[in-house]
């Protein structure tokens, strides 16, 4: 089985997200980087499928040269190799991102054969565009379901489960297929020492990303207005309990 997982390098902000003075990017000074939890789960899903069925799993990202860090991390938890579609400046719009990823997957497949599965996150952590995976899947002619909370492959069919208002829906996608993964589908493993060492040697190919610009333009990022609040201190330690319960009575939640 051949699997491709698409992940995006994003900053990992703490208490708040700061924006650069020009408003065009998140201020990443002093921040570490990661990928979306959804994408971490997509990586874990791919590694488990390869463990169960054999084959290989490629992790692919479009981003700056530093995104090699996220590819190496994915390799440290079991991905076979990595592809970095490098973009010089800032973020690409979703249409352009999808075009570049589609072209890259096509060229890998022309050389090495089709991927049985292409996995994405349900949405990117920073952009939240809810579309890159769906655009890529359509361009490649693959069925696609987003938001998967369950994924099994049996007899050439991807059995996908996802949550809906009243319960769980199941889908049966004939391979080759594409699936957008949601956090909660599995519990991603942490890298082992052996995994970390192996990841240093994993093959990572860097190619320049190519794709025509789309029609959505970023003007400015800004923080939403915060509800200004002063915190009422109810007390220290267990002695505060009566005050807490007074408050619950006042708020009408103690019936």
């Amino acid at each position: 089985m051949r699997i491709c997982v698409c992940v995006k390098r994003v900053p990992a902000p703490g208490a708040r997200i700061n924006v650069t003075d020009d408003g065009l990017a998140v201020d990443t000074a002093h921040l570490g980087f990661t990928t979306s939890p959804h994408e971490e789960c997509a990586v874990e899903a791919a590694v488990r499928l390869v463990e169960a069925h054999g084959g290989s799993a490629t992790v692919l990202t479009l981003g700056p040269a530093e995104a090699e860090e996220q590819l190496r991390y994915a390799a440290s938890v079991g991905m076979t190799d990595g592809v970095l579609l490098s973009v010089p400046g800032g973020d690409w719009d979703p249409q352009r991102t999808a075009r570049a990823i589609t072209a890259a997957i096509r060229s890998i497949e022309a050389r090495d054969g089709a991927f049985d599965l292409v996995l994405f996150g349900n949405e990117s952590a920073d952009g939240c565009n809810y579309q890159v995976g769906i655009r890529v899947a359509h361009a490649l002619g693959r069925p696609m379901v987003n938001g998967a909370k369950g994924l099994e492959v049996r007899d050439g069919v991807a059995h996908v489960q996802r949550e809906a208002d009243g319960g769980r829906e199941t889908y049966e996608l004939p391979l080759p297929a594409a699936v957008g993964i949601r956090e909660g589908i599995n519990l991603p493993r942490y890298p082992t020492m052996k995994g970390r060492l192996a990841s240093k040697k994993a093959a990572v190919v860097v190619v320049a990303a190519e794709g025509d610009e789309g029609a959505q333009r970023l003007v400015r990022l800004r923080r939403p207005e915060e509800r200004s609040s002063t915190t009422v201190l109810l007390g220290q330690g267990p002695d505060a309990a009566p005050k807490v319960v007074d408050l619950l009575e006042e708020l009408g939640v103690l019936r």
Binding site: L233, G237, D239, A240, V244
Partner: peptide, 23 residues
């Protein structure tokens, strides 16, 4: 704590059972 409307400063392992006991 700084964003919440109300806060108790302390070890949750002591505070939470005390709230239940009081209720």
């Amino acid at each position: 704590v700084t964003k919440a409307g109300y806060a108790v400063i302390g070890d949750l392992h002591a505070v939470v059972p005390a709230i239940s006991a009081e209720i």
